[in-house]
């Protein structure tokens, strides 16, 4: 895709631009070994409303990257752009470059199915299909020819990875709707893991559950980072401090700053990031 001048494009289509983009890559401290996701001058629109503008960043493999920022700052849009879930939203457009595990999302030849097989996603509200626990775990594998033994193994592995096996192994054939919200969210994680993704996108996974369940999901995320690249949107700054390896701070559709946990919570980061991370106050 040819390079696009955002301001010219916005003027041409009379799109609303957010505040001046201050997007820049500022990774400090330990250098990530490999890049899982690379965005260059990435922008997104819903109709005429520009929700992301000129995002340039890299997300490292095998780490937990938390995306923070006030509501409406474009965090979820960026997360949902990674596996192109937003494609199904009417009037959604994107420009710039975004590659996931080397797969360039701009190219129309890129297979969405191939991309989404590599990128699992768990949403804010647990959404279990009103089927049995076992069927829920295997839901993403429908259409695949898998033997019964393999299915049983996948169910066990996925539920163990999601720290749910001990709680449900005696009632796998019971409806998933009988589980508590926290258990349902872990079941959603197990379902996402069953398709063996490389990247796990989590959109405020603890927002709809009680603090105890939230903590158990947090410990689960920490365990999962050894096998998956995890990108998580969250509003909980304390949670971010507890579990994030890297932090991306978005505001008004722009990536203001990104860096390691230590850097972002130190005095070295920008005034804007510090204000938000320390006091949950934003003046962008």
């Amino acid at each position: 895709m040819p390079a696009v001048n955002l301001k010219t494009l916005a003027k041409e289509f009379n799109y609303a631009m957010p505040q001046t983009s201050k997007s820049y890559l500022k990774l400090v401290g330990e250098k990530p070994a490999e890049t899982a996701i690379k965005a260059e001058n990435f922008s997104a629109w819903f109709g005429e409303n520009c929700v992301l503008s000129g995002v340039t960043t890299q997300i490292a493999k095998g780490r937990i990257t938390c995306i923070v920022g006030p509501s409406g700052s474009g965090k979820s849009t960026f997360l949902r752009s990674i596996n192109r879930i937003n494609d199904s939203v009417p009037r959604y457009k994107m420009h710039g470059s975004l590659s996931v595990e080397g797969l360039d999302l701009d190219k129309k030849t890129s297979s969405l199915t191939q991309l989404r097989a590599q990128v699992g996603m768990v949403f804010q509200k647990p959404c279990v299909f009103p089927r049995s626990i076992k069927e829920n775990v295997l839901f993403g594998l429908r259409g695949h020819k898998i033997s019964r033994t393999e299915k049983d193994q996948i169910v066990e592995q996925s539920l163990k990875s999601a720290a749910l096996w001990n709680e449900v192994h005696l009632r796998l054939d019971q409806s998933a709707t009988t589980l508590s919200l926290g258990q349902q969210q872990r079941l959603c994680i197990a379902r996402a893991l069953a398709v063996k993704p490389k990247i796990l996108l989590l959109d405020e996974p603890t927002a709809s559950v009680d603090p105890v369940s939230g903590r158990s999901i947090e410990s689960l995320i920490l365990k999962l980072k050894h096998d998956y690249t995890i990108i998580m949107v969250t509003h909980d700054i304390r949670q971010t401090k507890r579990i994030a390896d890297d932090i991306m701070f978005f505001c008004s559709g722009a990536l203001i700053e990104c860096g390691t946990n230590e850097f972002m919570f130190s005095k070295e980061c920008s005034e804007q990031s510090r204000l938000y991370l320390d006091e949950a106050f934003c003046e962008c």
């Binding site: 879930i85 199904s88 969405l112 989404r116 959404c127 839901f139 429908r142 996402a192």
Partner: peptide
Amino acid sequence: TYRENGYALGFNRSQVIRYI
């Protein structure tokens, strides 16, 4: 959200229609 969960699991549109 049910459709989005289907897409997020790697289904294409016809699979989302068929299964969900």
